[in-house]
């Protein structure tokens, strides 16, 4: 976090609604955050929390019946909301790049890697094929692909899943974007490959000053990667702050519940030698169609009161640590018995 830097991306009260039978639902509801150059922001939530839709909104990829209903998205001071489709296309792949869970969303199976990479460069910049090819080769080398010249001539199906994801990352890096949005890019990969990619992404973003939004369901992934974390529930950011603040002293009961649900965190066996049951969150995530009024987490929350029938405002509990909760947990580190 470098407060002296102007943030690369400022998202302010972004709301994305989907019209459907029986009214419209807010998949993203008044979401505000910012990312600084070289910073990694973890966007964490379970399925249906709106984390991917937040990413799609920033990329201008919300298709009808969805629409960005309110708020603003500013990239380096430039307002993106309401941009014509042609200008969005010019931005994507150039100033904003994306990485998906399935690298085949990015890669065309019938084209060689070099063809695809050179095209990506030349779609946004007027340079020769040879220069573009050199850039492509550099990008492959930077993401840790051994013998990049050989890989350039390969087709996607000739590469392993981890390799393909690396190529997708290299394509994202090609035009030195200001912002990369990565949606669960390591979820389908093995632990050892995931570790390598996480490690490399961190270094790359720091060195190039690219801002990175890492969308994931896995708190453990952001723990080792992100500088700051936003936790989403039912379309809203319920808590955000520095990674240590959110993961070590969570203020929102939902964040606490997620941490307690993660098995790695509390595997201390009890006196009988058996592990304790996980402290699970009761109930299940609500459908966006039938959200309770006020705090959406209220029906599953042990701390809820009548007050929670209203939408809780975002309250800054510590510098940079914001939660939307009327009854936040104490944010001083407590000693657990």
């Amino acid at each position: 976090m470098n407060p002296q830097h102007e943030p690369t991306l400022v998202v302010d009260r972004l709301t994305t609604r989907f019209a459907g039978r029986g009214g419209s639902v807010a998949a993203v509801d008044e979401v505000s955050f910012h990312v600084a150059p070289g910073e990694v922001l973890g966007l964490v939530g379970e399925s249906g929390s709106g984390k991917s839709m937040t990413g799609f909104s920033i990329l201008g990829l919300v298709d009808p019946p969805g629409e960005i209903a309110a708020g603003s998205i500013r990239l380096k001071g430039r307002e993106l909301r309401g941009l014509p489709a042609r200008e969005w296309r010019a931005l994507r792949g150039d100033r904003i790049a994306m990485i998906f869970q399935d690298p085949m969303m990015t890669l065309n199976p019938v084209l060689r890697i070099d063809t695809q990479m050179i095209e990506t460069v030349r779609a946004h910049r007027r340079i020769s094929r040879d220069a573009a090819r050199a850039l492509a080769r550099d990008a492959l080398a930077r993401v840790g692909i051994p013998s990049p010249d050989e890989r350039l001539r390969a087709y996607p199906h000739q590469l392993s899943g981890g390799m393909r994801q690396r190529v997708a990352i290299a394509i994202a890096l090609l035009n030195a974007p200001d912002l990369i949005i990565a949606d669960e890019p390591t979820t389908a990969l093995d632990v050892t490959i995931q570790a390598q990619i996480l490690f490399e992404m961190q270094t790359l973003c720091r060195e190039s000053g690219t801002a990175l939004i890492w969308i994931t369901h896995d708190l453990a992934v952001v723990a080792g990667l992100a500088d700051r974390v936003c936790v989403m529930y039912a379309g809203r950011i319920v808590e955000q702050g520095g990674t240590a603040q959110v993961l070590e002293t969570p203020a929102h009961p939902y964040t606490r519940g997620l941490l307690d649900s993660t098995p790695a965190a509390n595997a201390q066996p009890d006196a009988t030698g058996r592990p304790q049951p996980l402290r699970q969150i009761p109930g299940m995530a609500p459908s966006l169609k039938e959200l309770p009024a006020g705090c959406a987490f209220r029906p599953r929350c042990t701390r809820a009161s009548d007050l929670c029938g209203q939408v809780p405002p975002a309250v800054e509990l510590a510098p940079g640590h914001v939660a939307r909760c009327f009854h936040p947990l104490p944010t001083v580190p407590e000693v657990k018995p």
Binding site: Q276, P277, R279, Q280, P282, G283, M284, S287, K289, E290
Partner: peptide, 17 residues
Amino acid sequence: MSETSPRPAASPADSEV
């Protein structure tokens, strides 16, 4: 360890299925 046994998971509204 019985307190933590899951209660019947809440059912989504039957109306729109």
